[in-house]
């Protein structure tokens, strides 16, 4: 585990609805507690409609959340602007571009450019020598990657873009990003999965695609929301016969116990498949029964992810 949080950049990926954001937060807290200056990056205007509902304070600025922990929500338009500012040293040139809005048109017309500058910003945060003036130096950058249909999409962006721009500064930039992402010394990849049929298949496919299409290995797989095995096999039999004898609420409670035992068992089978079909080590995270994840629940996960 040390290995994962020792990397400068940790990309947390996986399909929607698997608890990626929660795992990202737990990892960021674990890194911060270990004394690393950590920043947690969300990619704005992606899957997380949560912004719409409980709009938080986190914006494009690096905001301190706790000791050693900062957070940022990366906005593609802001990233684009920052990118241009960093590229053009002459103020008159920048003004010319920004006044004309031509760069907005370029962003609209060039497939993948917004995604590229988003990754570019993440990379910039992870640099030991920040490009942004008086930028804070971080030890660890944790990215809650956007959920896409095809998991490799986000990480493949730099290479995709390098193919669009054959030569020139943007291609060089894209290639530098691609090298950074594919360097296992600097970048780590964690995949969040669920112990269910489809998510297990998808995780195995994602690991394979990341290796074949992007050329990166997965450092760790988190198998999230695993039910506890509360009842031993022999106890299940006793509960079964008790369910037949009991009446009323006691009967309902016995049936709930049997349902839990069935799910816990089915999940263990899926967990075994996950371990069998994936090369990366699998860490399990417990199902949290409280509906709204509180601080105490996160605490438990912080220990579990690290």
């Amino acid at each position: 585990m040390r290995a994962l949080l020792d990397k400068r950049l940790v990309i947390v990926t996986g399909k929607g609805g698997v608890g990626k954001s929660t795992v990202s937060l737990a990892l960021a807290l674990a890194a911060a507690r270990a004394g690393k200056r950590t920043i947690l990056c969300e990619v704005a205007s992606q899957e997380h409609l949560s912004h719409v509902f409980h709009s938080s304070e986190v914006g494009y600025h690096e905001t301190q959340m706790a000791e050693n922990l900062w957070a940022i929500s990366i906005d593609p338009d802001e990233s684009m602007r920052e990118y241009v500012l960093l590229q053009l040293k002459v103020k008159a040139m920048r003004d010319l571009l920004f006044r004309s809005r031509i760069f907005t048109y370029l962003a609209a017309a060039t497939p993948g450019l917004k995604e590229l500058v988003t990754i570019g910003k993440i990379w910039e945060l992870a640099l030991t020598e920040r490009k942004v003036k008086s930028g804070r130096r971080y030890d660890t950058v944790i990215v809650d990657a956007p959920a896409t249909g095809h998991g490799v999409g986000f990480m493949q962006t730099p290479r995709t873009f390098a193919n669009v721009a054959r030569v020139g500064p943007m291609r060089q930039q894209a290639e530098a990003l691609d090298r950074f992402i594919r360097d296992p010394k600097r970048t780590g990849v964690a995949v969040v999965a669920l112990p269910e049929e489809m998510p297990v298949n998808e995780t195995a496919a994602l690991e394979r695609d990341l290796a074949e299409e992007v050329g990166v290995g997965v450092d760790r797989i988190y198998c999230n929301a695993l039910y506890p095995e509360r009842f031993a096999e022999q106890e299940v039999e006793r509960i079964e016969s008790a369910a037949d004898r009991a009446n009323g609420v006691a009967r309902v409670a016995c049936r709930a116990a049997l349902a839990e035992a069935r799910r816990a068992r089915a999940q263990r089978e899926q967990l075994a498949r996950l371990e069998e079909n994936c090369a990366a080590p699998v860490t399990t995270l417990p199902f949290v029964f409280t509906p709204q994840l509180g601080v105490a629940d996160i605490e438990g996960l912080v220990e579990a992810v690290a």
Binding site: M93, L97, S100, T110, A165, R166, V167, G168, P169
Partner: peptide, 15 residues
Amino acid sequence: TMMFSVLRRITGVDL
């Protein structure tokens, strides 16, 4: 014309 030449500094000619 000048603007496009500035833009090219960022994108390269081919793009």
